[in-house]
């Protein structure tokens, strides 16, 4: 079961063709994800978000995504019609986005947004859908699901909003979840709690998780495996537990520019970058 990977990506490229020339955001990325937690780390512009979105085939023009192979549990995602692809989105592969302030529809009640996620994939009665939505909100540890269901996004705090976002993406029970900087917009105090909830759900449901972040430490404590991206390429792939042994100078640089409590008082090292790595 665990032998066959959930997702296989080979030579993924994302290009943006504009009047001012072609920009390559992702330049030949290959990796596999099973029912495990894989982290993708990189600084802004390294192509990590674009990698996540191209798996869902949600790169909008003028962006173009191509890959030699993009297989999801034996299905060739690139060969699917838009209709079949839509049936995959949400139902099999879902994505939690960065900031609930922007990723929840501000004029729609939370309940309608949750129920919609369910209703586009299954024929389900109103009361059944409502029941599932309440259960899902309870699963992300929202204390008063009834009230949140009839609330609007602006009435929730960031931490609560992000838990709603997680609930909305997990309600049709997908097999793979892409979490694109799911805690970057949250207060530090709430970050850990949201992560704990996300981690618990991923484990309980046996899903695969792609965790996209710029925070190497966070990713290494939270994931099984880490892909380090730089300028649209994966420069190093390493088990999270062996991160201290990372060999690539860019990964080492990322590790060394973090301060440590009780560490030496020397100035932090400046991150070294070299275009030749990519």
């Amino acid at each position: 079961m665990t032998d066959e990977p959930l997702l296989e990506v080979e030579n993924l490229r994302v290009r943006f063709e504009t009047s001012r020339g072609v920009t390559e955001a992702v330049r030949g990325v290959s990796f596999q994800v099973g029912r495990e937690r894989v982290g993708i780390v990189g600084e802004s512009g390294s192509g990590k978000s674009m990698t996540g979105r191209s798996i869902l085939r949600l790169i909008r023009p003028p962006g173009v995504a191509t890959a030699d192979r993009l297989m999801f549990s034996g299905i060739d995602l690139q060969a699917l019609s838009e209709r079949r692809m839509r049936a995959m989105r949400g139902r099999r592969i879902a994505m939690v986005m960065q900031d609930p302030k922007y990723s929840l529809n501000p004029v729609m009640r939370i309940g309608s947004q949750l129920v919609e996620a369910l209703k586009v994939h299954e024929r389900i009665s109103k009361s059944k859908a409502r029941e599932r939505a309440l259960q899902m909100l309870a699963d992300v540890q929202i204390r008063d699901p009834e009230r949140v269901l009839s609330a609007y996004p602006h009435e929730l705090s960031g931490g609560m909003g992000q838990r709603v976002m997680i609930a909305m993406m997990l309600i049709p029970s997908p097999d793979l979840l892409i979490a694109d900087e799911p805690t970057s917009a949250l207060d530090v105090t709430v970050q850990l709690e949201v992560l704990r909830i996300l981690d618990g759900l991923v484990k309980d449901r046996g899903m695969g998780l792609i965790f996209i972040s710029h925070d190497l430490r966070l990713v290494s404590t939270f994931c099984d495996r880490v892909l380090v991206m730089y300028l649209g390429k994966i420069v190093e792939e390493i088990d999270a537990s062996r991160l201290q042994d990372a060999e690539h100078p860019y990964t080492r640089g990322l590790l060394e520019c973090l301060p440590a409590i009780g560490g030496s008082h020397e100035p932090l090292k400046v991150l070294k970058r070299d275009e030749a790595w990519a």
């Binding site: 949400g90 922007y102 501000p106 996620a117």
Partner: peptide
């Protein structure tokens, strides 16, 4: 261009 539109597409909304 807003994120909630992308989120709706991620959910599989037509």
């Amino acid at each position: 261009g807003q994120e909630y539109v992308t989120a709706a597409r991620v959910k599989g909304v037509p």
